[in-house]
Amino acid sequence: MHRTRHLPSRPRPSALRPAVWAAVLALLAACAACGGGDDDGGDGGARAGGTDRDGWQLTWSDEFKGARGTPPDPHKWVHDTGGEPQWGNEEWQYYTDRTANAALDGKGRLVLTARRDQLPDMADCPYGSCDITSGRLTTKGRFTQAYGKFEARIRVPEGKATLPAFWMMGDNDEEKSWPGNGEIDAMEVVGGEPGLVYGTVHGPGYAEEGLGGSHELPDGERYADGFHTYGVEWTKDRITWTVDGTAYHSDRRARHDAKHPWVFDHPFYLLLNLAVGGTWPGPVTSSTPLPARMTVDWVRVYERS
């Protein structure tokens, strides 16, 4: 979907004394691998049953432990399958439940792979070249939660026409169709803007463009160059987006009105997917690197303890 693209305001640095700076630098050095762009499978939060230093209690997680080539845990994830028009956005990919498109790598990670592939069911796709498959997973029917902290450590693919996402949908979609059920996009990195991550909400009156913000990496860095932890902290009055633990945008209940209602007061389920082509990232070309891989180190959900 099209997104609003407001760059976040940058916080002013505080004036710290030299001794405090030394302590801060020591802590940063000790925690360098906690949530940034490394490739080491960093932790970044409390494990199952634990409470982190900020008072968050883990309620659900997937660390993706399992043998290489095995499917994601069916007790936690469900595959969405098929192609347009059910997903919107005029995307090109066809989602399957095959391990060729969603599987564990044997190193504690999930890999969603978009690849050139042609299946019999794809013969009548309305958009694109009908030869790209990918993966889309959801916890619908397995896990939902209202409010809390929702995080995933992900390495996104590189290349134009890709659109990886970590997001949530309101679990009341059988009573209220989209956008009335609400949508919270914790992370979208469109391939043509490799240094930007977008965080957005969608609801009645702000369905297509959404309301949100973005965060840009410094010095021409790209999100595809390493793992980053993407998250939202959601309360009854506010949703705040973070990258590697740093907040970059908030949406507040008080900013909404009758024409743009706040629809974030009920449980939501999680989604991970790798889209290709469509109205935002644009068409697939000969330079689009396929296969493209979205690698997920972990997904964790917390509530206040």
Rank of each mutant, 00 (worst) to 15 (best):
T144N: 11
D117C: 13
A146V: 15
C125D: 13
F143G: 06
I132Q: 00
K140E: 15
T138A: 15
A152K: 01
A123L: 12
P157A: 01
G128H: 09
E151H: 07
K149D: 01
I154W: 05
Q145A: 13
R136H: 15
Y147G: 09
R153M: 02
R142W: 11
R136P: 06
A146C: 14
E151W: 02
L119D: 09
F143T: 05
P126G: 06
G148H: 02
I132L: 10
P126T: 08
A152Q: 10
T139V: 12
V156W: 00
Y127I: 11
K149H: 13
D124T: 14
V156Y: 01
S134P: 03
C130M: 04
A146T: 15
I154M: 15
S134L: 01
T113I: 02
G128P: 04
L119G: 04
K149Q: 10
T138C: 10
C125P: 00
E158V: 12
G141S: 12
P157R: 03
A123G: 06
A114F: 10
F150Y: 12
K140W: 13
A114L: 05
C130Y: 02
T133L: 05
R116H: 14
Y147D: 10
R155Y: 07
C125H: 02
G135P: 03
R142Y: 08
G148T: 06
R136L: 11
A114K: 01
I132P: 00
D131L: 01
V156H: 03
R136M: 09
G128I: 02
I132T: 12
A123Y: 07
Q118P: 02
T144S: 15
E151A: 13
P120W: 09
R153N: 11
G135A: 01
M122N: 00
R136S: 14
V156L: 02
L119W: 07
R116L: 14
K140S: 14
M122Q: 13
A114S: 12
R155W: 08
M122E: 04
F150E: 04
P120G: 11
C130E: 03
G128W: 00
R116K: 14
S129F: 09
D117V: 03
R115W: 07
D117S: 15
P157S: 09
Q118W: 06
T133N: 00
Y147Q: 06
I132R: 00
G135W: 05
G148S: 04
C125S: 05
Q145E: 11
G128N: 00
G148N: 09
Y127Q: 08
G135L: 04
T133E: 02
V156A: 03
C125M: 15
C130Q: 08
P126D: 12
P157D: 07
R136Y: 12
Q145M: 08
R136A: 05
T139W: 09
G141H: 13
D124Q: 13
R142C: 12
